[in-house]
């Protein structure tokens, strides 16, 4: 008995439920782009090697190209289309725009979703490979430019907008910290 190769499922994306039937081979990335017309999430490599397809799943950043859509049922998914508050840009988006943390723009949605994750992960006290001492008694590392660079390294930018991206993430993180 051959198992079914497609499933009907409901995806929770940006607070909205989308019911669809997917080929099991369909990645979350392709479901977003080709089935749900949410094309803000980009396909740069389709192999988890560039970060352009980064979305948030249950609040954590993930690459949607290696996430099967069928396995994403039940998760809360946030894409770039769900980041702004209506017409008001999220502070991370605003900082990318103001500081020119983008050029061609293709890696930008992934960079922004990743930055949201970075700020949350740092707030949760997570260390990174740039952290000198990972032991808990060393405390939470300051979110320096070096920490931001390491934490954002899963998002390639071929135009080379890295310098202003790091500035944008730092500024947004600082603003978030001050407002918290």
């Amino acid at each position: 008995m051959a198992p079914s190769t497609s499933s009907a499922l409901t995806l929770n994306i940006n607070g909205e439920k989308h019911t669809l039937t997917v080929d099991h081979r369909t990645t979350l990335l392709d479901a977003l782009r080709e089935r749900l017309d949410l094309t803000g999430t980009k396909k740069g490599c389709d192999q988890g090697q560039c970060g352009a397809c980064t979305v948030l799943m249950d609040g954590r950043r993930a690459v949607s190209c290696l996430q099967l859509a069928v396995a994403a049922e039940g998760r809360e998914i946030t894409t770039i289309e769900g980041v702004a508050d209506g017409d008001r840009l999220h502070p991370v988006q605003q900082a990318f725009l103001d500081l020119d943390g983008l050029q061609c723009g293709y890696c930008t949605p992934g960079q922004i979703c990743s930055a949201l994750g970075v700020i949350q992960e740092h707030a949760a006290g997570w260390p990174s490979a740039a952290t000198t001492d990972v032991r808990p008694e060393a405390g939470v590392p300051e979110l320096t430019a070096e920490e931001i660079r390491e934490r954002m390294s899963g998002n390639l930018c071929r135009c080379g907008a890295y310098v202003s991206i790091v500035q944008a993430v730092a500024e947004a993180a600082r603003a978030e910290e001050e407002s918290a």
Binding site: G48, G51, T54, M57, R60, R61, A62, V63, L66, Q67, S114, G117, V118, E121, P127, S128, A129, T131, V134, R135, R151, M152, S153, G154, N155
Partner: peptide
């Protein structure tokens, strides 16, 4: 601590979350 460091040295934040 070397285990934490090794894991953090691998892949990317997105991939480590998955």
């Amino acid at each position: 601590p070397a285990l934490a460091e090794a894991v953090l040295a691998g892949a990317s934040g997105q991939l480590r979350n998955m």
